[in-house]
């Protein structure tokens, strides 16, 4: 990789200041960023390390919400008794990210800020209507994901935590690419506390999105058969050497049905 400067931040505000001053990038777990730097797809002049900042750590259960600190490792979400008790679908999702070694380094905040088209966390955040909390503001899930690797975050804005409203039930199922294990299609289904059905899809398009037709079907009956009977249009879906847009469109109701069955 190209030469890079390194600074360690003491707080989220400190990290923001260091990034604004240097034009650099935040380093969370580095499981996507370091690989991108090795390939020279990313060439930050400065890395500002967020490790060890107290305000980015911790998992808290408050009235009806589960809050996960931005620097929480996937493995720690997967193993958290609080997560398993309140929203077990999130623990299962975290346990399915990458492999054990990646889960031991990678963080929820890093994954969301990166917004990889096939990342798992964006589907959970969008389906549950979570709130992304930064050191400056609160961003609703529907306003956060802007496009491929693009979010509503300013360049010097630091995610501190994600707040998930506890749903009635939820589940995430992905159809992994056999080689990379990234989601070819991943579907997070949820029945929210108010009874509404939400369905978010990752891996199938440049950015995570809600599957309106599957949501409409599940609003009538939250059953696998209802999900499976929904029609998803292939327009706008990704087509690549792994799967055509039509195949991804076919997979979405199928995987959604499996998720409803698991919820």
């Amino acid at each position: 990789m190209y030469a890079v400067e390194y600074q360690k931040a003491k707080s989220a505000a400190d990290a923001s200041g260091l990034i604004a001053k240097s034009g650099g990038r935040a380093l969370a777990g580095g499981q996507s960023l370091i690989g991108a730097m090795k390939l020279r797809l990313a060439q930050p002049g400065t890395l500002v390390d967020l490790a060890g900042i107290p305000e980015l750590a911790g998992i808290r259960v408050e009235s009806g919400t589960l809050s996960i600190g931005a620097m929480t490792r996937h493995a720690d979400v997967a193993g958290s008794a609080d997560v398993k008790r309140t929203i077990p679908a999130l623990a299962a999702l975290a346990e399915g990210i990458g492999d054990r070694q990646v889960r031991n380094m990678g963080t929820i905040g890093g994954s969301l800020a990166n917004n990889d088209p096939a990342a798992d966390w964006p589907a959970a955040v969008l389906a549950l209507g979570a709130t992304v909390i930064t050191h400056q503001r609160r961003i609703g899930a529907s306003d956060f994901f802007k496009g491929m690797y693009e979010t509503a975050l300013a360049a010097d804005e630091i995610i501190t935590a994600v707040s998930f409203p506890v749903p009635r039930k939820a589940a995430y199922v992905k159809f992994p690419n056999p080689a990379s294990r990234f989601a070819l299609v991943g579907v997070f289904v949820a029945q929210l506390a108010d009874g509404s059905a939400r369905v978010a899809v990752t891996g199938a398009a440049p950015s995570v999105f809600r599957a309106a037709s599957v949501e409409a079907a599940l609003a009538k009956a939250f059953t696998p058969d209802a999900a499976k009977a929904a029609h998803v249009d292939a327009a706008g879906l990704s087509s690549d050497l792994h799967a055509s847009a039509a195949y991804r469109a076919h997979l979405i109701p199928v995987i959604a049905a499996r998720a409803v069955a698991a919820a």
Binding site: Y6, G30, G35, A75, R100, N104, M105
Partner: peptide
Amino acid sequence: CTIHLDGRAVKSCNVLALQ
């Protein structure tokens, strides 16, 4: 390249020494 970092397995080719 798997090693233990504070007791947890990580891939040391994907971690900066400074981390």
